[in-house]
């Protein structure tokens, strides 16, 4: 076991865990932040996506020991900036969500895309979001919501 100091959604946190513990489980079990979901455990589905130093990151495969002092943003904190808020608002206005399980990861992925490409084309959206899986098949509404958020951010 080892102590780790993390910055999560702007707040300093300290946990004592095995260094190999994936960040996902540190967030969910040690910090009780259950908005980030476990979908596959092998970085295949994107449900565990958080931002580490502004980069969309699959928290299920990143050991907490490799995070270092890079700031972490989760779904709980994504609404703290304008792009996050625009995406959340678009998700509501476009009525994207069905079961909701994948949507934390979808939103985190969408925010990362829009911060890098404010005016994404359909091809950009497909490439960037192609690794976030939705068993309910909300892809069409996800794409529309990203475009809506992009328009709002003009």
């Amino acid at each position: 076991m080892e102590a780790f100091k993390l910055t999560v959604n702007g707040q300093a946190k300290e946990v004592t865990v095995d260094p190999g513990t994936p960040l996902l489980w540190v967030l969910r079990e040690d910090l009780k932040m259950t908005g980030t979901k476990y979908g596959c455990g092998i970085a295949a589905c994107g449900a565990c996506t958080v931002h580490v130093a502004g980069i969309a990151t699959r928290s299920c495969v990143v050991p907490v020991s490799l995070v270092g002092d890079r700031p972490i943003v989760t779904i709980e904190g994504i609404g703290q900036d304008s792009v996050g808020r625009a995406v959340q608002d678009a998700w509501v206005s476009e009525d994207v969500v069905q079961c909701g399980y994948c949507q934390s990861g979808q939103i985190m992925g969408a925010v990362a895309l829009l911060k890098s490409l404010p005016r994404p084309t359909d091809a950009h959206i497909e490439e960037a979001m192609g690794g976030n899986l939705c068993r309910c098949g909300t892809y069409v509404r996800i794409r529309q919501a990203i475009k809506t958020a992009s328009q709002q951010l003009k």
Partner: peptide, 23 residues
């Protein structure tokens, strides 16, 4: 990679031995 799905989305600065992801 692409925005939202970069190489570093999973591949960190060194090997992640507990999860098997090279880095």
């Amino acid at each position: 990679g692409v925005a939202g799905l970069n190489c570093v989305t999973c591949h960190q600065g060194s090997n992640a031995e507990s999860t098997g992801v090279p880095g």
